[in-house]
Amino acid sequence: MSASGWLTETAVLARAVAYKSLVLRVRYAFNTVTSLFTIYVFFALLFFGGREIAPQAIDDSLTGIIVGFFLILTATVAYADLSWELIREAQWGTLEQLYMSPLGFGRVVTIKTAVNLLVAFGFGGVLLGAMLVTTGETLVLDPLVVLPVGFLTICTAVGVGYVLGGLALVFKRIENVFQIVQFSFVGLVAAPVDQFPLLKLLPLALGSDLLRDGMGRGTPLWDLPTADLALLIVTAVGYLVVGYALFGLLSRKARADGKLGKY
């Protein structure tokens, strides 16, 4: 197939996946709104409750808390949506239909992930706005920092999402793994990477630290440590490639075990 044919087909599929994602989110609006609202309520409780108990501590770390919540929501939507969608598609009986696309299951899943990333940034943006209005705080939202650093940071979570997606195809019930990963991500967003540099290799940790610098202190992209930016690129690509490879192996195992369409 020619490159233009490949691109045309990809665009056709991307449009369809985005449209379906949007329509299903609107038609499952209650679920969509409550998931966003729950995180906001959790933040509001932490913010107002914390101010009553330890106002100085909250004020000192408010920027970190806001950036952390933004990252947690964005990363969660990005990594968990893929796994949940694969589980739901298996339940709906549509997963095997997706697999039978001549564009390739890998391309279908990658496009789904890209759409999820856009949705994740959309949700993150809405939550970020709500948090800033609630707290009266201001952040430096330099797109040259937020977009590339945020994207690379979320890519590390997406790599984990690929692995979870593959596990979901094989084992179906992986809710407990989700909870462990979710708790781990909360810890990693606040990880003290300056004290323990090895933590930079874990998902979200390094990117979260760089975003706090960029959004909290207004550090421009070119003033962020070059070595850290390079490491962020390496970890983002590494997690994506390894996660995708494991997803491929696990989906092959699901096919070998006859579990692809089962739930």
Binding site: E9, Y19, V23, L24, W92, G93, Q97, S101, P102, L103
Partner: peptide, 29 residues
Amino acid sequence: AMLEGARNVYWRLTPRENIRFFASLQGLD
């Protein structure tokens, strides 16, 4: 292929939306 009868489509979508989606999944505009 139509596998498992009625479980092969998105129940929250309309027939037309389903048809358009599965055509797109085939790379057909």
